[in-house]
Amino acid sequence: MLNSDFVSLASSDVAYKNLSDTLKAKGEYQFLKKSLSKGKHGIHQGVYIVTPSGKLIKQIGWGWPLPDVDKINAQLKQSITEYQMMSRAERLGDVLLTEKDRSMPVESSLSPPRPWLQLRNTTRSYQFSEMNLFDIRHPAFVTVDKLWFSGLEKLQFVPSNTAKGTLEKVAPKALNTMLLNSHLITGRSAWWAEHIQKAEMEMKVVSSTNKQVVIYYRGTFNMHADSKWCKESYVGKLLGKAAWNPSRKQFTSFEWVSLGEHEIDKLKSNMHRGSNQSVTVASRLVLDPQHECEQGIAPANWPNNYARELRAEVK
């Protein structure tokens, strides 16, 4: 229905609200403002059905924190009916926006150099006592992020000797980007390098040909923070498998899976519920499948938590 009966838009209300007055005066922002002027909160987070003429048909949403799919389905169908009952003038109005009406600058699409290792990360907690859908650790929620390694960094995950049976250690520092950017836990925490108490990973070549080197990984991590901004710990293990093409110097498959205990000493009222401080959490990192709507989106902590030389490489 979203593809066939509607045009679907997903965008940031905050980005529109933060535009300059000059850009807000243009047609695009004025259309958005007009469309939501009869909504409860104007331009605000939510799901709305509007006409191309800028008339609000309905605000969609039923049930919180667990939306009622059947009722939302009914709302969508009712919106289509209402739209079809309008006159052509009421549906379309007489304004077709053009580039001169643009308020929101075209998003600059970030694209790392081809040799980089681009991973996509999903993380989900397991059930825990007192779990509540308000809590970001609830297993109904999956955290999605990206993790980038430069062309040089990724070589740290390939043994220097690719003969079958070779066992080598990964330099602990190579794991910092993954650990400090919270890729093994749900949500994001303010980890610093000194919070990493243990970061060990070894890699073993399990098969090797001229075309493909299969590598298995085994890692152990221990993090503990007691700063003003982060009072948390993480203890976990990681296993992984990857296939490396030695001539192209690229991974053709890659999967790291972790399982650990994440403990938060000080729960936050805007993110957590109940008194349970510790949850078991699973994480998975794979080659980024480059979903169309995620293209051009950088890792959540980009560019702040990436080295300056890496930032300089990304256009």
Binding site: L2, D5, F6, V7, S8, L9, A10, S11, S12, D13, Y16, S35, I43, H44, Q45, G46, V47, Y48, I49, V50, T51, P52, I57, I60, L76, S79, I80, Y83, R88, R91, L92
Partner: peptide, 9 residues
């Protein structure tokens, strides 16, 4: 000539 589903987040 279609309505817009507008998700703002």
């Amino acid at each position: 000539d279609k309505p817009i589903v507008m998700i703002l987040f």
